[in-house]
Design a binder for these strands. Structure first.
Lengths: 336, 336
DNA sequence: CTGTTAGCGCTTTCAG
DNA sequence: CTGAAAGCGCTAACAG
């Protein structure tokens, strides 16, 4: 773990510390010949400036914090957020930043995780639902941040969100154009913006095509109850011919419930999901769903954050990512 | 982002920097009254020592690196490794360490990720398959490390592994005791210790019960080919009555292939998996599989690593975690 | 018990 | 173009 310090390099090169520093940092006030000579020595000795020394001097850690909220789901790293995390990591690596991961926000200790309290990050990316007080405090403390898929809209914060409403509209419209009229809407609780907007998109599409919504067809009780939701739905006297399920994770439960009822997809019931997680493509039948560009959400979040960090007065922007319908085999065409 | 430094606290408390430091760090050579007085001021001003200053002085970053290998799978953060990561994160948080995540090991730049080159971590946890040269270099450089579920056995490195062979034995034995004789083995490539050992356990069980292994029943071509593997298997003239699939992710493909062949689980084919990922419980039918204590692997890795860090001469230990058969509904009892 | 001082590894004025 | 010196925030010897 011991590796040379700038002092040893200077000793070997028989020059001062500052000269070595200049060579490393590409400063102009150094002759080309000494730079090359020093860089050679640096390479030979495998020297890299210590993050601690550099950081202390520059007041920059080159670390970015990524904070997930545990309350969100039992599984904080579900397939959806994992992909976002991968996008973040890749983009940070490109920009030579480290990723400091935090899955569990401590209730005590000022509510700030260690990495923030000790100023070990230059900024943070907040994923999904976060306590409002927490976000506000961060903003008060002027900590550069960007929100990804937040629970609700924070004005004057930089955010990366999905075009949930449009996506839901597209999904619902797709079912309608396939001849479906009795369409159910299934979703986790609507306490999050994402799902509220997906519900809004569903409503908008139904209204737009002059279709009425049977209130029994709207099930918004949360992911855990996905199985029961669907079961109940399909045992209704007059059951829907299609379901728009606002979350592919939920669809996994739905598939199971349907199978246990000995019904077939899409013959007996059509389904469109949302998110396009890895499972959706290998499900049987493969799920028609709205693709969300998860890695891209992550990389955009990073680029925006680094921009805020380097450009103090950058204004808060909200990036809305479009989604795309991926047609697979879970929807029956009633027009045929 | 600006927060007080120890200097400002000292000024407010009208004392020296060292006195503040002593108060914070619970040193003995300070009177109880001044300690309380200073701690009060520290609290009021919301002061926490900077990680950079502290780290530079103490030569401790209180950061731990966690390195995944991208080459492993297209998805580096699959459900199995996500859980391990969660276990690591939780244990690090308890011990007041930060987690620095690295998913992409850079081919260039000395092969070391930034966090290691710049000495921004006190040690690293390496998950899954890693290039041997990389691991050896880390060991040469005396960087504290522990390997979790490594590709092959590193003597004199601390490791956390699963009892793969025993688990596979149990799984196979379970099928045998349920009356199955024609049992297939399906697995990703055997280039990893995990799967090699699972294969060994399968063989051992078959041999132990004097069952012969049909070589057509052994399919070890990799995860991506799971679908085709199973399809081929089930179209054999004499098809197996059961399969031991060394990986639940693989089982997902198997389920699909079976369904597409209009066969039923477990009536037509019984399956036992390995890993017990979240999907296994909600699959239809629910999958009988070997449970691996993933979070625990993570927390043990952390505890061992911190031990190595604080106790320089700690010897390399290998922790072998037992697995447990979780009986669900994917196996038919042929004895009935 | 308290404070002064040196120094962790680095960058950056500022003289020379 | 080079180097001496100061200082980023903190802790620990060591005097007092």
């Amino acid at each position: 773990m011991k590796s040379p310090t700038i002092r040893e390099i200077a000793r070997i090169a028989e020059c001062s510390l500052s000269t070595v520093s200049k060579a490393i940092n590409g400063r102009a006030d150094i002759s080309e010949s000494t730079r090359r000579r020093i860089l050679k020595i640096v390479g030979d000795n495998n020297y890299t400036p210590s993050a601690l020394g550099k950081g202390l001097k520059n007041q920059r850690t080159e670390n970015i914090g990524v904070i997930f909220s545990k309350e969100d789901r039992p599984l904080s790293l579900n397939p959806f957020y994992s992909r976002i995390l991968e996008g973040i990591e890749a983009e940070l690596a490109i920009n030579k930043y480290n990723l400091v991961l935090c899955l569990t926000v401590d209730k005590k200790t000022n509510n700030y995780p260690k990495m923030i309290r000790e100023r070990n990050v230059d900024g943070v990316i907040l994923i999904s639902v976060q306590k409002e007080a927490f976000v506000n405090q961060l903003m008060d403390d002027r900590i550069p941040l960007v929100l990804v898929d937040p629970n609700s809209n924070y004005h004057n914060a930089t955010q990366v969100v999905i075009d949930n409403e449009d996506g839901a509209f597209q999904a619902t419209q797709y079912l309608i154009l396939k001849g479906h009229k009795k369409i159910a809407f299934i979703s986790p609780h609507l306490d999050r913006d994402s799902f509220r907007l997906r519900y809004a998109g569903f409503n908008k599409a139904m209204t737009h095509y002059h279709l009425s919504i049977d209130e029994n067809y709207v099930q918004i009780e949360g992911l855990e109850h996905g199985y029961d939701q669907v079961r109940r739905l399909l045992q209704l006297k007059e059951r829907p011919t299609a379901m728009f399920i606002a979350n592919d994770l939920n669809v996994m439960y739905a598939y199971q419930a349907i199978r246990d009822l000995h019904l077939k997809i899409p013959e007996d019931i059509s389904i469109v999901g949302f998110d396009d997680i890895a499972w959706s493509k290998i499900a049987s039948p493969q799920l028609t769903t709205m693709r969300v560009y998860k890695e891209e959400m992550g990389s955009i979040a990073v680029r925006n954050l680094l921009n805020i960090i380097s450009n103090d007065k950058a204004s808060a922007i909200t990036t809305i990512l479009p989604v795309k319908l991926i047609e697979r085999n879970s929807v029956k065409d009633l027009n045929e």
